[in-house]
């Protein structure tokens, strides 16, 4: 095969751009999940949040004709699903793993039902035009770097800001300090006067915002249409990326970029006939992003042997008396 078509100078910028596009929805969801897990909540409902965000943003943008209304609607629906997760996991303190899986089932059924009820069986399904790319003056003209970093659509810039914001909140604010405290030592945080349940509620809502935004990026910026299960398991990959990034928002985003670029690369190798010529089965290409992610996780955890996992992850916090606070 022709490697220049995959990794040559002319092919590199499209490869990175495709990697960024593939990384964005998953990465946003994963960054929100990272904050949520830092507060001690294992939010497995993420796929449901992404999917609801996708449907919400589609409906908002389609009916209003305004991309930003779509984004708001997507974030809104994502937050609503996260609130259900919080109600079950934080208020009722039912098992977090099961809550998450059930909500994914619920969101899958509800989004399908809603879409079908609204648009019926048709050969002309609704769609709208996706956001155009917005070239930042001067910076966008820098050869190479400019085309990758400063010639994207507006949502990509917003997403980058959102990731930065989560990082800032987690490490530079009082709320972030409480989040980390609650995730490590909820009893100590409680003793210090932190309302554990309220912090966890808020962390889940942040996860809803980011997941909803991820769904909106997928629809408003990339596809302009909706189909059943359009998120195709990205929420599950995002959960893996949180652990990949060792619960640090920036590393999590880095993991999402690695996953996205690997996916973009395997598509290009397949297209260049890499599989046909070498006899390597294409299933191996399809599995490549997952295998690379596992390999990097193994390497990274073997390198840094400290245990970054929040100590109370997955455990509901119940005071000794078993009462719940609000």
């Amino acid at each position: 095969m022709d490697w220049a078509a995959v990794l040559g100078a002319g092919a590199l910028i499209p490869l990175l751009n495709a990697g960024i596009r593939l990384a964005m929805p998953t990465g946003l969801a994963a960054v929100g999940e990272a904050l949520c897990q830092r507060a001690g909540v294992l939010n497995l409902s993420l796929e449901g949040i992404l999917l609801s965000g996708a449907l919400g943003s589609f409906l908002g943008a389609y009916y209003s004709g305004q991309a930003w209304i779509g984004v708001i609607a997507g974030v809104g629906l994502g937050v609503a699903v996260a609130a259900l997760m919080a109600l079950l996991s934080v208020t009722f303190k039912t098992e977090q793993v099961i809550n998450g899986i059930v909500i994914v089932l619920l969101a899958g059924g509800a989004t399908s039902l809603a879409y079908e009820k609204l648009f019926g069986v048709t050969t002309t399904p609704p769609r709208f035009d996706t956001l155009p790319s917005l070239k930042i003056p001067l910076l966008g003209s820098i050869p190479g770097v400019g085309a990758v970093l400063f010639d994207q659509n507006a949502l990509v810039y917003i997403s980058i800001l959102a990731v930065g914001a989560v990082w800032w909140v987690l490490y530079r604010t009082r709320f972030g300090l409480s989040v980390r405290a609650v995730g490590e030592r909820p009893d100590a945080a409680d003793a210090a006067g932190v309302n554990v349940d309220r912090i966890r509620w808020c962390a889940l809502l942040v996860s809803g915002v980011m997941g909803g935004l991820g769904g909106a990026v997928l629809i408003v910026a990339q596809l302009g249409l909706f189909r059943d299960n359009i998120t195709a398991g990205r929420g599950w990959v995002a959960i893996a990326l949180v652990i990949f990034g060792r619960w640090s928002p920036l590393r999590v985003m880095g993991g999402a970029l690695l996953f996205g670029i690997t996916d973009a690369l395997q598509l290009r190798i397949q297209a260049a006939g890499g599989g046909v010529e070498t006899g390597v089965p294409f299933e191996l290409f399809q599995a490549l992003p997952y295998i690379v992610t596992i390999a990097v996780v193994v390497a990274a955890t073997a390198w840094a042997r400290d245990d970054a996992q929040p100590k109370s992850l997955g455990f509901p916090y119940e005071k000794e008396a078993g009462t719940r606070e609000d």
């Binding site: 294992l42 599950w236 959960i239 893996a240 652990i243 990949f244 299933e283 191996l284 399809q286 599995a287 997952y290 295998i291 992610t293 596992i294 996780v297 193994v298 955890t301 073997a302 042997r305 245990d307 996992q309």
Partner: peptide
């Protein structure tokens, strides 16, 4: 056990490897 890799990530990702395999 050997590298401290979290079981959620490896078990989840191995699902995909199994499917493609």
């Amino acid at each position: 056990a050997v590298w401290g890799v979290n079981e959620v990530i490896s078990s989840l990702l191995l699902n995909y490897v199994a499917i493609f395999g």
